[in-house]
């Protein structure tokens, strides 16, 4: 279970949220600049909250007192908005970057690569593949470290409508395969409804409404 209580002063408003989630897909929905990405960055450890806590499966990432756990030790998978693939490494090297035991991890990853249809891309460089392919590679890379939670920041915003729909279906399938909490940030209402088991509506740093989707 992920338990979050965050308080952070941002330039234009105060981020003040509290939520909990299990192995579901939770969507943070809101207009750009409502603090969604900051929440992901706090969970990943790239940004520190002013106060509050973040706990995942009994492991403390941040507490009011004490030093925050460094990002390297959090076992968080993070899919960045523009994917942040390493341009100087092949797809294979990108995916292998965070693996602890290469051989075992590749074996475990094989079904995922098959579902994503990216096995043939392994020797290519990021600039040689399409946007949709980059998105899938980034997803595979984030999962290759066998994270305890996956954070996705506007995962489909750089894709055209057709590819987006396909990628959504894939993501739902992968979630069913992986069974870890997925935390998705989006400003697309349709996407929020299609993906989220739970949707948190964010407005200027606060949760204004919670919606549970029993039939998504």
């Amino acid at each position: 279970m992920l338990s979050v209580r965050l308080y952070k002063q941002l330039p234009h408003f105060t981020l003040d949220v509290q939520f909990e989630m299990n192995g579901e897909i939770l969507v943070l929905f809101g207009p750009s600049g409502s603090g969604k990405t900051t929440i992901l960055n706090c969970i990943a450890g790239l940004v520190q909250p002013d106060s509050g806590w973040i706990r995942l499966h009994g492991v403390s990432f941040v507490e009011d007192k004490g030093k925050p756990l460094p990002p390297q030790q959090r076992q968080v998978g993070y899919l960045f908005q523009e994917y942040a693939l390493f341009p100087h490494m092949t797809v294979e090297k990108n995916i292998a970057y965070g693996m602890k035991q290469k051989e075992q991890s590749w074996q475990k990853l094989e079904p995922l690569l098959a579902v994503l249809g990216i096995t043939h891309l392994l020797p290519k460089y990021p600039h040689q593949i399409s946007g949709g392919e980059k998105q899938r590679v980034a997803l595979a890379r984030a999962l290759a470290t066998e994270p305890s939670i996956l954070l996705l920041d506007e995962p489909f915003s750089a894709l055209d409508e057709e590819t987006r729909e396909k990628c959504r279906q894939e993501l739902l399938r992968i979630h069913a395969m992986w069974r870890i909490p997925f935390l998705v940030v989006t400003h697309d209402r349709d996407e929020a409804d299609k993906l989220g088991d739970t949707i948190l509506f964010l407005d200027r740093g606060r949760v204004s409404r919670v919606q549970r989707n029993s039939d998504k």
């Binding site: 990943a44 450890g45 790239l46 990002p71 390297q72 030790q73 959090r74 076992q75 968080v76 998978g77 993070y78 960045f80 523009e82 942040a84 390493f86 341009p87 970057y97 965070g98 602890k100 890379r141 470290t145």
Partner: peptide
């Protein structure tokens, strides 16, 4: 973001 991505991967 590239450096941050590397960090989150351990």
């Amino acid at each position: 973001k590239l450096e941050q991505a590397a960090k989150t991967m351990g």
